[in-house]
Design a protein around this nucleic acid. Structure first.
Lengths: 185, 185
DNA sequence: CACATCATGTAACCAGTTACATGATTGG
DNA sequence: CCAATCATGTAACTGGTTACATGATGTG
């Protein structure tokens, strides 16, 4: 069980539909938890069957109806249990980094293009996260918000995500520049 | 197929045994590719069966014998093909970040402890990577090395790994300090 | 003599990916 | 009317994890 806890965490203080969760895992949470939408719908079903979540149909006008999910008490307990359990090592799998490592076997122009594409994606995600963080802290200075707000978890995690994407973009551009320099000289 | 390319990349310019690869994936490459030793031995077998790698027994005195693996021409071609193929999105799964996100449901002291443990691990990995980078560039200034060396891939990837772990350690300590402050005030 | 490190695997199970499938509504 | 966005799934497959298994050698 792995995705479960990420889903429970996302639903800790709000109800969301599968679709909203898929946006979240695509944009906000992608820097610390990766999941496809198919996986989400499957896991939401299991979590509901296991009594950790309850789903309610929400009728919308102007859009297809949706099913939103909320934590049950059992779900919250399971999340608390999880936070106390030993932490598993981080699992990262990044094709682009493997390609950079194997630079010797790669076509330089193609690799440079891929690094630049990734840089652009990471810049966009960093910007999105910066906006999220601003929204979370409202008009307060960061230090005040972190000292007084009642739910700082998403802010802490979002900050790490922004760091990750800022670095990723910076590194990709740096690496691309080096490879470009090596081909043209 | 996923681990394959990471293994082929690691063997691009040297021969290594399963055990040496498991060290590499535990220390050097863990910031961009995660794999267990069981997985490595299984995949090395498949790669040999597919003709992308050849294994040779090396007799050692004072230690158990080992089997080292080297890229074949087919293996190198496959790696080149891979570097040109579309890059899959990065997959990250980090329990600790999910726990930070779910801070509200967590016991503060336990979470702080976990953040501090991770900070120490990341500091150690960053230091290891810094030493590796120094070894790779030898006595040259970084810019000279990157402009003139014939294999910069591992240096580029290692640099990203160091950034990742430096940030991770810094963020963990920052987050732990915030949570500590919130519990004591 | 016990512990750390070196060294390599197998088998059963589970998590995650890929391909397929459908349909409503809004805006250009 | 076409594309984008909203919305939700299933089935087959494959990649990865967990638990189990073994044994040599050097160091304190």
């Amino acid at each position: 069980m792995a995705l479960r806890h990420a889903l429970l965490a996302a639903l800790l203080d709000r109800e969301l539909s599968g679709y909203q969760l898929s946006k979240l895992f695509d944009l906000g949470a992608s820097s610390f938890w990766h999941a496809s939408s198919q996986q989400l719908y499957a896991e939401l079903g299991k979590l509901e069957a296991d009594g950790l979540l309850t789903g309610h149909e929400v009728v919308q006008q102007g859009r297809p109806n949706k099913r939103v999910f909320a934590l049950t008490d059992a779900g919250r307990d399971e999340l608390t249990r999880f936070t106390g359990a030993p932490t598993k090592p981080t699992s990262i799998r990044d094709d682009l980094m493997v390609k950079a490592y194997a630079e010797q076997a790669a076509d330089p122009d193609t690799l440079i293009k891929q690094l630049e594409d990734r840089a652009a994606q990471s810049r966009a995600k960093a910007e999105f996260l910066a906006a999220q963080l601003e929204k979370l802290r409202g008009d307060k200075p960061e230090a005040d918000f972190l000292a007084s707000a009642d739910n700082v978890g998403p802010y802490l995690a979002g900050t790490r995500g922004k760091m990750y994407h800022d670095d990723q973009a910076e590194w990709c551009e740096w690496a691309a520049a080096i490879l470009r320099h090596r081909t043209t000289s």
